[in-house]
Simulated scan of single mutants.
Amino acid sequence: MSEISLKKITIDNFDQVIKLSETLNDYQKRCVAPNMVSLAQAYVEYERAWPRVIYLHDEPIGFMMLALWDDDIPKEDWPAYYLWRLMISAQHQAKGYGKKVLDIIVNKCKEDKIKTLYTSCEMSGNQPYDFYIKYGFEDTGINDGEQILRMLIS
Rank of each mutant, 00 (worst) to 15 (best):
S89V: 06
S89P: 07
A90Q: 13
A90I: 03
Q91I: 07
Q93T: 06
Q93N: 04
A94E: 10
K95Q: 14
K95D: 02
G96S: 13
G96I: 13
Y97T: 04
Y97C: 01
Y97M: 02
K100D: 08
K100S: 06
L102M: 14
D103W: 03
I104P: 00
I104V: 09
I105K: 02
V106C: 11
V106H: 02
N107D: 15
N107M: 13
N107P: 03
N107Q: 15
K108C: 10
K108V: 07
K108A: 12
E111Y: 11
D112A: 15
D112M: 10
I114N: 02
I114S: 05
I114H: 07
I114T: 06
I114R: 00
I114F: 09
K115S: 13
K115V: 05
L117H: 01
L117N: 00
L117I: 04
L117P: 02
L117M: 04
Y118A: 03
Y118K: 04
T119F: 06
T119A: 08
C121T: 15
C121S: 14
C121K: 03
E122R: 12
M123T: 15
M123P: 00
S124H: 12
S124V: 06
G125T: 11
G125H: 09
G125Y: 03
P128A: 06
Y129C: 01
Y129I: 04
Y129P: 00
D130L: 04
D130F: 02
D130M: 05
F131I: 08
Y132F: 15
Y132H: 00
I133D: 01
I133H: 04
I133M: 12
Y135S: 02
Y135V: 05
Y135D: 01
Y135T: 02
Y135C: 02
Y135L: 04
G136D: 06
G136C: 05
E138M: 08
D139V: 03
D139F: 07
D139G: 01
T140D: 09
T140R: 14
T140K: 15
G141P: 08
G141A: 10
G141S: 08
N143Y: 11
N143L: 12
N143V: 10
D144L: 14
D144N: 14
G145P: 10
G145N: 09
